[in-house]
Simulated scan of single mutants.
Amino acid sequence: MHDSTSALDPVCLMQDLFVDPDARAGGVGAALIDWLRAETAARGWSALYWHTRETNYRARALDDKYTPHSGFLRYTLRE
Rank of each mutant, 00 (worst) to 15 (best):
residue 16 D to Y: 05
residue 75 Y to S: 01
residue 15 Q to V: 12
residue 3 D to W: 04
residue 63 D to Y: 15
residue 65 K to I: 01
residue 33 I to P: 13
residue 34 D to K: 07
residue 57 Y to G: 08
residue 9 D to V: 06
residue 19 V to C: 00
residue 14 M to C: 04
residue 7 A to H: 10
residue 65 K to Y: 02
residue 70 S to F: 02
residue 15 Q to S: 07
residue 9 D to R: 12
residue 15 Q to E: 08
residue 11 V to M: 05
residue 32 L to E: 10
residue 15 Q to W: 10
residue 47 A to C: 11
residue 10 P to I: 07
residue 26 G to K: 03
residue 20 D to I: 03
residue 38 A to E: 12
residue 54 E to R: 15
residue 1 M to A: 08
residue 58 R to Y: 00
residue 22 D to K: 02
residue 33 I to N: 11
residue 26 G to T: 03
residue 60 R to I: 04
residue 67 T to I: 01
residue 45 W to L: 10
residue 55 T to M: 04
residue 49 Y to G: 14
residue 17 L to N: 07
residue 36 L to V: 09
residue 39 E to M: 15
residue 8 L to P: 02
residue 45 W to D: 09
residue 16 D to F: 09
residue 18 F to G: 00
residue 66 Y to P: 07
residue 23 A to F: 00
residue 2 H to S: 05
residue 31 A to C: 08
residue 46 S to Y: 14
residue 38 A to R: 08
residue 27 G to E: 03
residue 20 D to N: 03
residue 49 Y to Q: 06
residue 74 R to I: 13
residue 26 G to I: 05
residue 52 T to I: 10
residue 66 Y to A: 04
residue 28 V to I: 14
residue 3 D to G: 12
residue 56 N to C: 06
residue 21 P to E: 06
residue 18 F to T: 02
residue 7 A to Y: 13
residue 50 W to Y: 09
residue 38 A to Q: 14
residue 37 R to Y: 13
residue 74 R to T: 13
residue 73 L to S: 15
residue 72 F to C: 07
residue 58 R to M: 00
residue 21 P to S: 10
residue 12 C to V: 12
residue 13 L to K: 09
residue 60 R to T: 06
residue 1 M to Q: 13
residue 49 Y to V: 03
residue 41 A to F: 01
residue 65 K to Q: 08
residue 33 I to R: 15
residue 9 D to G: 12
residue 36 L to H: 05
residue 65 K to F: 01
residue 16 D to Q: 13
residue 67 T to G: 02
residue 74 R to K: 09
residue 24 R to Y: 01
residue 33 I to Q: 15
residue 74 R to L: 14
residue 48 L to V: 03
residue 33 I to T: 15
residue 19 V to W: 01
residue 73 L to I: 10
residue 59 A to V: 01
residue 75 Y to G: 05
residue 63 D to G: 08
residue 44 G to V: 14
residue 12 C to I: 09
residue 41 A to T: 11
residue 6 S to F: 10
residue 33 I to M: 10
residue 44 G to I: 14
residue 53 R to P: 02
residue 11 V to L: 10
residue 38 A to D: 15
residue 74 R to A: 12
residue 60 R to V: 12
residue 71 G to H: 11
residue 52 T to N: 11
residue 63 D to E: 03
residue 14 M to H: 05
residue 39 E to F: 09
residue 65 K to S: 04
residue 67 T to M: 08
